[in-house]
Design a protein around this nucleic acid. Structure first.
Lengths: 187, 187
DNA sequence: AGAAAAAATTAAGCTATCTTAAGAAAACTA
DNA sequence: TAGTTTTCTTAAGATAGCTTAATTTTTTCT
């Protein structure tokens, strides 16, 4: 239950009161493989911190094609930030790819905690900051790398993910069809 | 000179001391059209807040092709966050597309100000948060939209930019060649 | 204003990636 | 363990977007 605060403590000092304060805001939830943590079209009520398991965040385009935006495993976050913050309908859906345990925080607690706990506020600030950097890198990849290069980058950067996640979902993440990924691999 | 704090005050209350504290950390710099605010390969010393003018942030790939990552105009930020925060060599370059005035903050002041001023810290936190959302949207676009769709989205979403910035640079931003953008337009 | 440089257009031929479809392999489920 | 569903592979034909190169238009510089 305290895996999140353990994660925070790697970089920030937490008094035991602060730690309790943070833990009090999160509820443990479990999802079976294929279950949805979030459906698109509804307002996202939670941000999730993954304790174990693996989920995908994806969007379904107008042609009904799904595009995986990110995978989240142990010690990563997931959620539709836009929907969560602005209380708009979610354009993303989040689905468990394995049986998954998460810590969920609702929007009220998120706001209160961000105001009350300086550590939590700094922690999420740095989380956003890293996310900006990571997404910019990803964007550059999509603009300047070929599908083969993106694939090789993916398997070297995330070796464990490439074991755990089906090719179909990796292909979608890379922005190519599963057939083409299969074709790439045999080269 | 106080355009940044005016921008901050749209969403946050600032005492005049805090305002002075923030302003003290920023220095006005001007760049002529085509001048570089940042060259790639060196550590980025500043984050920039654009007062007027327009700049592009871009990366040059292994084939020497430039890819525009973002444009920044009045009241937007630019900088290589990764390089600025981690003191690593910058992979991006930033170039003025018009004569441009910016407010620049160096890394020491940035850190001090983030600790000293709660408003500034909250402001940049929200800035990062919005950037994450915006970049995720952009990623989705690149994954699920065709070049024509991306172009139309761009000109409706950023009508002023599409006037100010050359097609060549818009094409690069959209991830297509200028020839193909020209082809698209005549349809 | 005129010359030089940069940007935009046009078009032909090319390549990366997609689509469709069918069969093989693997993963669930009863 | 067999049957069913899902995923992976293979291959042929189609298409979006690229490359090259020549021409025109626009911008910049003197």
């Amino acid at each position: 239950m305290n895996k999140l605060t353990r994660h925070i403590k790697k970089k920030y000092n937490l008094t035991s009161e602060e730690e309790a304060e943070i833990n009090a805001c999160f509820a443990l939830k479990t999802f079976n493989k294929k279950a949805f943590l979030l459906q698109n079209g509804i307002t996202s009520q939670y941000e999730f911190f993954v304790i174990n398991g693996c989920v995908r965040t994806f969007i379904t385009d107008l042609n009904g094609v799904e595009h995986n935006i990110m995978f989240s495993i142990e010690n990563w976050w997931c959620g539709d930030l836009q929907s969560f913050i602005n209380r708009t309908d979610s354009s993303y859906a989040i689905q468990a790819l394995e049986n998954t345990e998460v810590l969920a925080i609702n929007r009220t607690d998120w706001e209160e905690l961000s105001n009350k706990s300086e550590v939590f506020s700094n922690y999420t600030r740095e989380l956003f900051q890293s996310a900006v950097i990571a997404q910019q890198n990803r964007l550059v990849q999509n603009l300047s790398f070929t599908a083969i290069e993106r694939y090789h980058y993916f398997i070297t950067k995330f070796p464990s993910l490439s074991q755990r996640v089906s090719q179909k979902h990796i292909a979608s993440f890379l922005g190519i069809t599963p057939e083409f990924l299969s074709f790439i691999k045999n080269k």
